[in-house]
Amino acid sequence: MTQQPFSRPGAIDLSGLSQPAPGAGAPSASGSYAVGVTEQNFQEVVEASLTAPVVLVLHSPSRSPESTTYADDVATVVAGYEGRFLAGLVDVDHAPQIAAALQVQQIPVMMVLVDGRPATQPIPGVLRSDELSALLDQLAQQMTAQGIGGRHQPRSNPVDVDGDGEPDYDPRYAAAQDALGDGDIDRAVEEYQKLVTANPADVEAAAGLAMAKVLQRTQGVDLNAARAEGAAKPDDVEAQTMVADLDMLGGHVEDAFNRLVNLVRRTTGDERNAAREHLLGLFAAVGNDDPRVLKGRRDLMSALY
Rank of each mutant, 00 (worst) to 15 (best):
A225E: 10
V221I: 12
M248W: 02
A228P: 00
F257V: 09
E229F: 03
K213I: 06
K213A: 11
A212T: 06
N262Y: 01
Q240F: 08
D236N: 15
A244M: 06
N262W: 01
Q240V: 06
Q240N: 11
G230K: 04
L209H: 01
K233A: 15
A225D: 08
R217E: 05
A210R: 07
T218M: 13
G250W: 08
G251L: 10
M211Q: 11
A226H: 04
D255V: 00
R259Q: 04
R259T: 06
G251R: 12
N258I: 00
G230I: 02
A225G: 01
R259P: 00
A207S: 15
A239W: 04
A232H: 08
A244N: 10
D235V: 11
L249S: 09
Q240G: 06
M211W: 04
A256P: 11
D247Y: 05
D235M: 12
V253D: 11
E254R: 13
M242C: 01
A212H: 05
G250D: 14
V243Q: 07
A239Y: 02
L246A: 04
V264A: 07
V237I: 13
A206Q: 10
D247F: 01
A256R: 14
L215C: 08
T241G: 06
A228Q: 13
A231E: 15
A256M: 12
L209T: 04
D245K: 10
A228L: 07
A244F: 03
K233F: 08
T241Q: 04
N262S: 10
R259I: 03
A226K: 04
Q240D: 07
A244W: 08
M242K: 05
G220C: 09
A228H: 00
L260Q: 04
A207P: 03
D236C: 08
R259D: 01
R259V: 02
A207V: 09
R217K: 05
N224M: 08
V261D: 01
R227M: 09
D222L: 10
Q216K: 12
D245H: 09
G220H: 10
E229D: 15
V261M: 02
G208W: 07
Q240C: 09
G220A: 05
L215H: 11
A206L: 02
K213E: 15
M248Q: 03
G251P: 15
M248D: 07
A231R: 15
A228I: 01
L249M: 14
V221C: 01
A207W: 05
A228Y: 00
M242H: 00
K213V: 07
G208Q: 06
L263F: 09
Q216D: 13
V253S: 07
L263M: 08
A239G: 01
A206E: 07
N224Q: 14
A212R: 05
K213D: 11
R259L: 10
N258C: 00
D236L: 12
E229G: 04
T218Y: 11
Q219H: 05
L260H: 00
V264F: 14
F257C: 05
A207F: 03
G230W: 02
V237G: 08
V253H: 10
G250C: 06
F257K: 06
A231K: 13
P234C: 14
G230H: 03
A226T: 06
A228R: 12
T241V: 14
A231C: 03
H252E: 14
V237E: 10
R217A: 11
L263G: 02
V221P: 00
D245I: 08
V214M: 07
T241F: 09
L215S: 12
G251W: 09
R259W: 02
D236G: 10
